[in-house]
Amino acid sequence: MRYAKNFLYIVGLPALLLIGWVLWSAQSTSFFVPTWEQMTNAFSTTWTWSRMTTDVFPSVGRLIAGIIVSIILGIVVGLLVGSFRWLRQLMEPTMEFFRAVPPVVLIPVFMLLIGIGDDMKIAVIVLGAVWPILLNTVEGVRSMDEVLSDTSHTYRISGVARIRYLILPSAMPQIMAGIRQSLSIALILMVISEMFASSAGLGYTIIQFQRSFAIPEMWSGIVVLGLIGVIMSFIFQIVERKVLAWYHGQREMENAG
């Protein structure tokens, strides 16, 4: 009974919205509102396997590559900058500036410097997505528990072991917060880099549909992009719950106690 109720809560509003759209589009003559049949047609004809391999998978591949590079770069540089106070003070204003630059304006810059290949797109994704991770890592390293830090000093835990068992775990909650932000930035930059300069990819395809006034196809592209965003955030939540299982447990105990 309780499950049924929860289920209703979850599907209730989306179902209502869907029904509303189907009913409304059936009587609407608006050019921009496709009907149910048009949409399902557009979906089955547009997102075929060949389209997936030529446009979707390369885009997602660049996205994943960009995210992985930003995570590694962000954590490594963040650990470095966070560990040395002078380095942090040296870098802080410059990083503050780079963070404030809207990452999309780097697309024309990188187009000039690197060209319009995959490299450029991945570089744009990395340069936009690395800042939340980097700055959160710095902040995570800084806000380390002093007692833990002193204890590990006393036990002469240093070098790799110190990073592996002390710094990384204690900064991990903040790092994950940074990664969460980076994911959405990376997705946005993937789309835009393809919209601005490309001849293939998801962003390009959607813009192409819009330019040729293929409205149902354009909507289906928007839905696909949305689905990618939703799937990404879903995967992230699973990973985060795994990585930070100890932390959630600790917080629960502290909240209960």
């Binding site: 989306p14 921009f32 959405s184 997705l187 946005i188 789309v191 835009i192 919209m195 962003g203 959607i206 813009i207 549909f209 819009q210 006034f213 409205i215 354009m218 909507w219 592209g221 928007i222 992009l225 949305g226 965003g229 939703v230 990404m232 955030s233």
Partner: peptide
């Protein structure tokens, strides 16, 4: 569900 939908997906719609 709507939150992670990237806003730039709406660019074509906005243009139209």
């Amino acid at each position: 569900f709507l939150r992670p939908v990237p806003s730039v997906a709406l660019i074509p719609l906005a243009v139209l």
